[in-house]
Design a protein around this nucleic acid. Sequence first.
DNA 1: GCAAAAGTGTTCTCTATACACCCATGG
DNA 2: CCATGGGTGTATAGAGAACACTTTTGC
Lengths: 264, 264
Amino acid sequence: MADIESQIKILKDLIPKFLPGHSVDCVIFGYEDKELKVLLLNWKQMDIWALPGGFIFKDESMDDAAQRVLEERTGLSSIFLKQFHTFGKIQRSDHSQQEHHKKIMALMKPSKQDRKIVIDWFDHRFITTGYFALTDIRKATPRPDFLSEKCEWKSVSELPELIIDHAEIIQQAMHQLKIQLNYLPIGISLLPEKFTMIDLQKLYEAILGRPLERSNFQRKILKLGFLDRHEKLMSGAANKAPYLYSFNSTKYEELLEEGIGFRY
Amino acid sequence: MADIESQIKILKDLIPKFLPGHSVDCVIFGYEDKELKVLLLNWKQMDIWALPGGFIFKDESMDDAAQRVLEERTGLSSIFLKQFHTFGKIQRSDHSQQEHHKKIMALMKPSKQDRKIVIDWFDHRFITTGYFALTDIRKATPRPDFLSEKCEWKSVSELPELIIDHAEIIQQAMHQLKIQLNYLPIGISLLPEKFTMIDLQKLYEAILGRPLERSNFQRKILKLGFLDRHEKLMSGAANKAPYLYSFNSTKYEELLEEGIGFRY
DNA sequence: GCAAAAGTGTTCTCTATACACCCATGG
DNA sequence: CCATGGGTGTATAGAGAACACTTTTGC
């Protein structure tokens, strides 16, 4: 596996350029099949998952580092991205993490010195800042990093086993999403260009975790006036065809300043 | 000034025990004379102010570090304290900071080596996590740290000149205070045991930055039912005496879970 | 009695919510 | 025509804002 080995060499050279002790982790949200999803990485040689994360270069702001991680994993730039919490407990490492690093190290034969640098780097304590991102799942192209085998969207309602405190980080991100719902460009970030009213409602329901009344939702949203109505969507089903809508981003952004009202 | 010199020696020995690159800063709020105040430190030899802050020991959680800073500067423990944002721009240092360190160094004659360790420590890049605290100003006893001359409560409406990005940190803290108002134990933390309805109203007004209608405020708060009514406060003024109230903390905490409703 | 501030009542509007009803579509 | 789901109407309850009115206090 010369591939990993060369990656380790690259990493060894990068390590001195990173800020020690601090990392960023991204909770990248997408929306598909009426479910809220997050992008997760599957670690090589282990059946355990992790959030996409990375380190901060000494000459790079923390926000830029998060942006870089997001871009590397999804190919997307200029996406809504916001920090939500910094995790600073002492025990931010666990058995599975150490086991993983051992297995990775076993796969390669770098020089003793390189090996030591890399192991030491991963073994010391990190404080991590969590960011959440809102993406259109159809536009993203998930790409694993060198530590990982797979990079996949996983439904937040059935998350796989996650390393260290990453389950907690996702929980926190979802809570913040709920809390800040009225001030976030939920719809415009997570939905495709055109969508039906039910699509939008289901998205809100997925985030809020509770059902909303159909007719009232429709009236409320339309009254806010940030949607443009387009042609009807003929689904082929034996029922009335819904209109397609798109966001009038000017009006939408104006309204977001004040907050679009849904209590949680 | 052997005093500073011995402090520098202590600091030099502590530095290896700190996590490099990360600090905490506390925006400690108090309420007095109908004004929201924050506790600030005045740096020795300079007419510039700073937030109380500190570093994190390698075997200490970030929350504990913030708690320690709060306790060292106010003597208060078990106070409401919560992180609100992490500041990770590259240029988190400025001219006034460097000037200050030079002046401090000039005051003392430590060994060249000690001096280098301390200067290097302060000169490298820090990411800082901001915490805000809510305190009863009457119970706190402000104490300067060794870099500072004075430690005083300053009204948020007329802040003095602050180092680096500390003005921005306070702005952010105030914004979070406003946003989270309905979920924070504002009253019980910032007011004395007993207070009048107007006291509580003025506190809310100070945080929200806008006037509230007296009679409606009274009705709304009383209807929520977390206040116990006590004797009247005879002020000696030629007007009707207001009742004194205190928080029924059980009910208050129950309600805070759901949020006590004031739109901002 | 008068001024000032506290406490209570009334009215109006706006929103949320529930639910009824009509409309479009394809089988 | 019927089942299904979209779109609109309506009725009611509660919250919020504005403001009038009453009560208490010290001069």
